[in-house]
Design a protein around this nucleic acid. Structure first.
Lengths: 189, 189
DNA sequence: TAATGCATGTAATCGGTTACATGATTCA
DNA sequence: TGAATCATGTAACCGATTACATGCATTA
């Protein structure tokens, strides 16, 4: 999904500034399955404004530079609906962590254990993060959005499965690589 | 991981042509957590050749255009070892499927069920694919590579968790969205 | 006072995707 | 005969990342 559509999608859930949209992709509900950063968000918003898919009001603040609050227009909503008709590609998953572990036999035992332990912690943190967000929403009595809850649950399930797998198979990987660690590869030719 | 390093990494496991390397990223062991395509593989190999990190032999074939079989050099192996010292970033996961499901309330019930059912099938197929590859390796008595087995197991665990989650929560999502489907969003202003 | 958070934007670069271009063989 | 597989490459385009540039307010 391109950043342009992503910004529009965020704005269907409520008005926001570019800064706030960025936060959505860093910590918010989209953080775990989409991405966008300042360098792409601001140009995207300018373009959307020029195309009439969003509107902007300047919100002056005491002293601080005034922020631009964007709202989606009816035309913008139509573009989102059109985007929702696509046939989704298979998910894209990229992991440099798995790349490293694939070469476990070329890694020292300490490095391998460190790598895996850190990753377990990372997955647990991500899982907790989603759980906390869900709890916060419930506490605030935010209208339960079924799509959002479903996606959050998916994230929890995946992070849990990942952490559990690493935890359960860590010892056996270490055992089978023991003795073969950091073995210098035979130089080609 | 850039395509250059990825090609080098594939070649540590044995000689290959550009065409074969491409297949590794389409169907092979790297398919599930890294990506590369013709348009990036061939330029990468040319560059690696110029830098002396790989060597190429022309394998003439009966009639067919001769294929270039690449092998990694000692210098190339050193570059791979250097690449294995990086601190891996968090995994990158992007899913247009989840993006669509996030907006479940804007989708028709038929579309939502179709989307989820197809995705369950996709995850099951991917899971089976890895299982088959592992079985094939065992049948061929390929030297069990602990890193490869561990990564394959990780893939199976994740795909299974994803499919199971969808299967278990499909009905409840459908129930909570029922009646709220394809409700026209209030046009902004 | 130093760091962090709020707030917006531009520009260069870069890597990769997509499409194009070619051509032989094998299988249905 | 047509499709699929094997096989290698180039070029245009595009989107996104990275770094740069600025400046005030708050908090430690």
């Amino acid at each position: 999904m391109d950043v342009r559509t992503l910004c529009l999608a965020v704005l269907t859930k409520g008005d926001a500034t570019g800064y706030e949209i960025n936060k959505m992709f860093e910590e918010g509900p989209f953080a775990h399955f989409q991405n966008a950063s300042f360098g792409s968000i601001y140009p995207a918003l300018s373009r959307l404004l020029a195309e009439g898919l969003v509107e902007a009001r300047i919100h002056d603040q005491d002293g601080r530079p005034g922020k631009k609050v964007y709202s989606i227009t009816a035309a913008g909503n139509a573009v989102v609906d059109a985007a929702l008709t696509i046939t989704p590609e298979p998910d894209m998953f990229r992991s440099d962590f798995l790349f490293l572990v694939y070469f476990a036999s070329r890694l020292s035992e300490e490095r391998l254990t460190d790598l895996i332990d850190r990753r377990i912690e990372l997955y647990r943190r991500k899982q907790d993060h989603i759980v906390e967000q869900m709890a916060a929403r419930e506490a605030n009595q935010c209208s339960g959005d079924p799509g959002r809850e479903f996606v959050a649950g998916f994230g929890i399930a995946i992070y849990k499965a990942a952490a559990d797998y690493l935890e359960s198979n860590r010892a056996s990987l270490l055992a089978t690589t023991r003795g073969a660690h950091a073995r210098a590869p035979e130089a080609a030719e």
